[in-house]
Design a protein around this nucleic acid. Structure first.
Length: 512
DNA sequence: AGCCTACGCGCC
DNA sequence: AAAGGGCGCGTAGGCT
C-alpha cells in the first residue's frame, strides 16, 4: 500500500492512503505507521517530521521527494536549485490547477516519475540505496535535534573561566584577552587590534617584517617577542567568539545542545549543520559533553575511512590488501615505502586531495606505480572535472554541473581537485550514512523508543550514542554490526576492513 | 543599518 | 613545514 503524508501550506497535516488524500491528525498517521509500517512518501521530511515527533510519532522508513529530486537531478546532469533541507517550498503546492488541491496525488505522481527516472539511469540498485540513505538520514536528523547532545554548562563555564578569566560584560574583552592585547600593544609600541589582519600586517611592516598573511603557522615561524602573546590571543579569542559565554547562552538549554542538521547539505553528501557550529566542537571543549547520571556516551569513529573507501571502490588489489590491515598507512608503507609510514600517508592524502608538489610528489610516483588502479580512479575523476564533466560516487551521487562559463586554467585545476576528492569524500559519506540508518533501526528494534540508547551526534565518520550505562557494551556491538552491514551494502564481500574505534565513557573527551 | 567579501580558524 | 578536498561562523572592512 502506497502511503504519503505532508503539510498543507498553512501547516495542516494530510495523509494519502487507499488512493485518497484527506486531512489527518497525528494520531491517524501513527495508526497507519503501526499497522502498515509503510515507506512513506514525503515531500520534505525536514518540514513535516518535527511536528510529528512533537506529537510522539516515529516513522521507520520514508522516501523524501526533495532529496530524491536533488540526487536524480544531479545524476541527470541538471543544476538543482536549492539544497534539500533548506526548508523548501515544494513545487507541489504552487502548481497550477487542481494539482494543488490534492497534495497526496501530486506527491504520488512525483514519486512515480522519480521511479521512472531511477530506472532510466540504469543504476537503480545503487541509486535506490542512496535515496533510502538520505531519506532515513532526514528522519534521524530531526530526531537528533530533538534529543540533543548532553552538555554541561557548568563544566563549559569552568573551562571558559580557567582560560579567559571571569565572564566580562557583553561586548567587552575577557580579562585574559585584555591582558594579551595590552602586551601586544606594548611590544609594538602602539595599540594594534589583534583581530584585524590589516592592522597586524601594518604593525609587522613597521618592524621591518613583511608578511603575506597573519595565519598562525606563518606567525609561528617568526622570531619576534610579539609572536607568543599574539598566538595565544588568537587561540583564546577564537574560543571566546566561537564557543564562549554567548554561544553557551544561545545554544545550550536544559543540559542539551540542539543543532539543526542538514543531511546531504554538502554537495558531496556530507551532512551540514545550521547554527552553533556543531560539526566543529573544539577538542578543548569536549569534556563539557557529559552523559546524564546513570548513562554513558558511546563514541565510534571509522579509522582511516577515506583511504579504505578508495581501496574498496577502486578494487585495486594491492590497496585492498593494505586496507585489510588495522593501520592501512603502515601496511602501504611496509609494501611500498620501506616502512616509512609518514610518506605513505602524505602520498595517499595528496592523491585524494589533488596535491601536486611539496612532500607528496615523490610518494605519489610510488603510489602510481604500485597501485595503478586506485590512482587511475582519482586521476580520471580529476581529468573529468578539469574538462567540465561529471563524476559519481560509488552509489551514484553526482557532482553538480560546473558553474564557471569560461574557466581559467586555475579554475579548471581547482575543479579537478574538487571532483577528485568528491568521489572519495562522497562515497565515505554514503557509507557513513548507511551505517547510521542501519544503526537507527537496530537500536530501535533492541531498545524501543524509551531513550535507553539514542544517536545524539554524527560527524562525517563518527557517531555518538547516549545510552544507559549497562547497555554501553551492547551498543558498541550494534555499531560494529551496522558498520559491517553498511560495508556489505555498498561493496558486497570485500577484503577491505572498515575498522571502528569505539569507546564508552562519561564524557566526549574520554570517549574519543 | 544591512549586505557582501576576505580572512582566519575550528572540525572532518 | 604547510601544499591539496569539504564545511560554518565570527570579525573586519568596504559597499549600498
Amino acid at each position: 500500500m502506497t502511503c504519503a503524508l505532508g503539510l498543507s501550506p498553512d501547516g495542516e497535516p494530510w495523509l494519502h492512503r487507499d488512493g485518497a488524500t484527506r486531512p489527518a491528525t497525528w494520531g491517524d498517521i501513527a495508526a497507519v505507521e503501526a499497522s502498515d509500517r509503510p515507506r512513506w512518501i514525503i515531500p520534505s521530511v525536514a518540514r513535516v517530521y518535527p511536528a510529528l515527533r512533537a506529537a510522539g510519532v516515529r516513522l521507520d522508513r520514508c522516501h523524501d521527494l526533495g532529496h530524491a529530486e536533488t540526487i536524480l537531478g544531479h545524476f541527470e546532469g541538471r543544476p538543482v536549485a536549492a539544497p534539500p533541507a533548506a526548508d523548501p517550498t515544494p513545487a507541489l503546492f504552487t502548481a497550477a490547477g487542481d494539482r494543488a488541491e490534492d497534495p497526496g496525488r501530486t506527491a504520488l505522481e512525483q514519486y512515480a516519475a522519480q521511479q521512472d527516472r531511477l530506472l532510466a539511469t540504469g543504476h537503480a540498485d545503487r541509486l535506490g540505496l542512496l535515496l533510502a540513505a538520505d531519506s532515513v538520514g532526514a528522519l534521524l536528523a530531526v530526531e537528533m535535534t530533538e534529543d540533543g547532545i548532553p552538555w554541561s554548562a557548568d563544566v563549559h563555564e569552568r573551562l571558559l573561566a580557567d582560560a579567559l578569566g571571569d565572564r566580562p560584560p557583553s561586548g567587552a574583552r575577557p580579562p585574559r584577552l585584555q591582558q594579551l592585547a595590552e602586551q601586544i600593544a606594548a611590544t609594538f609600541g602602539k595599540p594594534v587590534n589583534p583581530d584585524s589582519p590589516a592592522e597586524l600586517l601594518g604593525a609587522f611592516a613597521r618592524e621591518g617584517i613583511e608578511l603575506e598573511t597573519t595565519r598562525k603557522w606563518q606567525l609561528a615561524r617568526l622570531e619576534h617577542p610579539v609572536v607568543a602573546p599574539l598566538l595565544e590571543y588568537k587561540e583564546l579569542s577564537r574560543l571566546h567568539t566561537a564557543n564562549g559565554w554567548s554561544w553557551l547562552r544561545e545554544w545550550v538549554r536544559d543540559g542539551r545542545f540542539r543543532p539543526e542538521y542538514v543531511p546531504a547539505g554538502v554537495v558531496t553528501g556530507r551532512w551540514a549543520t545550521r547554527g552553533g557550529g556543531a560539526l566543529q566542537i573544539p577538542r578543548r571543549l569536549r569534556s563539557a559533553v557529559v552523559a546524564d547520571p546513570g548513562r554513558l556516551l558511546v563514541v565510534a569513529d571509522a579509522a582511516q575511512l577515506e583511504p579504505r573507501i578508495l581501496a574498496a571502490m577502486s578494487r585495486d588489489p594491492g590497496m585492498m590488501r593494505a586496507a585489510g590491515a588495522d593501520d592501512m598507512y603502515a601496511a602501504l608503507a611496509a609494501e611500498a615505502f620501506g616502512g616509512e609510514r609518514a610518506r605513505a600517508k602524505v602520498g595517499l592524502l595528496g592523491a585524494m586531495y589533488g596535491q601536486v608538489g611539496g612532500g607528496a610528489a615523490r610518494p605519489l610516483q610510488v603510489l602510481r606505480a604500485r597501485y595503478p588502479q586506485a590512482l587511475r580512479l582519482l586521476e580520471n575523476a580529476a581529468t573529468a572535472g578539469e574538462r567540465g564533466g561529471l563524476v559519481r560516487t560509488h552509489l551514484g551521487r553526482t557532482s553538480p554541473p560546473r558553474s564557471e562559463r569560461d574557466p581559467t586554467p586555475a579554475q579548471e585545476r581547482a575543479r579537478g581537485r574538487f571532483t577528485r576528492n568528491f568521489v572519495v569524500q562522497g562515497t565515505a559519506a554514503e557509507w557513513a550514512e548507511s551505517l547510521l540508518g542501519i544503526l537507527r533501526r537496530s537500536l530501535h528494534a533492541a531498545y524501543g523508543e524509551g531513550g535507553a540508547a539514542r544517536i545524539v551526534f554524527y560527524q562525517h565518520d563518527e557517531v555518538m550514542v547516549h545510552c544507559d550505562e549497562h547497555l554501553a557494551d551492547a551498543v558498541i556491538g550494534h555499531i560494529e554490526a551496522a558498520a559491517a552491514a553498511a560495508t556489505r551494502l555498498l561493496f558486497g564481500d570485500t577484503e577491505v576492513v572498515f575498522g571502528l574505534d569505539a569507546r564508552a565513557a562519561k564524557t566526549y573527551a574520554e570517549a574519543h
